[in-house]
Design a protein around this nucleic acid. Structure first.
Lengths: 121, 121
DNA sequence: GGCATAATTAACCGATTAGTTAATTAACTA
DNA sequence: TAGTTAATTAACTAATCGGTTAATTATGCC
């Protein structure tokens, strides 16, 4: 699995990792904070591994502060997924209201000169 | 991997399967049509397996027509992913314009009485 | 019936994944 | 220095994944 997007989807294909991400969506947390809800079910090294998967997927960044490793959400990975999803919006966006609202933003963006131009493969 | 969302993410974590989905986003196709671009790289049974993964993930449906199996995109799986993504929109939506536009649709929806109320876990 | 086409199933294999326990690194604290 | 806390690394294992080849099913056509 060489490509980044596959790695990101793969990282999200696990309920433990998604729960860790949900935790981080509420703010920074150390490894042991993230681990706490799962220590009944799995060991700390398992958590370390999950975190590494999230890091490689571009979904989490980890820094150092004494013996702690504060982690936070990295929007890059999420952005990649969101960008990929766009090409399928017409399929999953069943509400006419919201699709219409979305199409307006597309028009608005075009008028402004395509700030976010980028190939999504 | 018991839960549906994990299965869906897992199905998307493969470039061959994403390419097949992209193909189907242009319209229905038989298994051999979907297979054609990949037959240099892998066998037909491999394609059958990939398709089965996409089906179980709720991303594709397959029907029967004589000896052919016309496949088409199933929006359910994509919808599940999109719904899950919503909780992270504030992270990946960096353009203020589009975030603002989105927030307007939220307000509009609230006024209408929350048509799309659903737990996404 | 006999053959070609479309697709699936079965059985197998090597690589990766998700977990384990035990040992180790690194920083603070008394 | 010795001990504690936070986290990682190493080595291993069972299960899953992505592919293979060979055989099988199912349909249409002469």
């Amino acid at each position: 699995m060489p490509d980044q997007l596959s790695q990101t989807f793969s990282a999200l294909a696990d309920p433990t990792r998604r729960a860790m991400l949900a935790h981080l969506s509420k703010g920074e947390a150390n490894v042991s904070d993230l681990a706490k809800p799962f220590l009944k079910d799995m060991s700390l090294p398992a958590i370390t591994k999950h975190l590494k998967v999230l890091e490689k997927a571009g979904l989490v960044t980890k820094s150092r502060e004494a013996q702690w490793r504060p982690c936070k959400i990295n929007s890059e990975g999420l952005k990649d997924v969101a960008d990929w999803m766009e090409q399928y919006r017409m399929f999953w966006e069943e509400s006419f209201d919201r699709l219409e609202a979305y199409l307006k933003t597309v028009v608005a963006k075009e008028k402004k000169g395509r700030k976010n131009a980028k190939k999504t493969k």
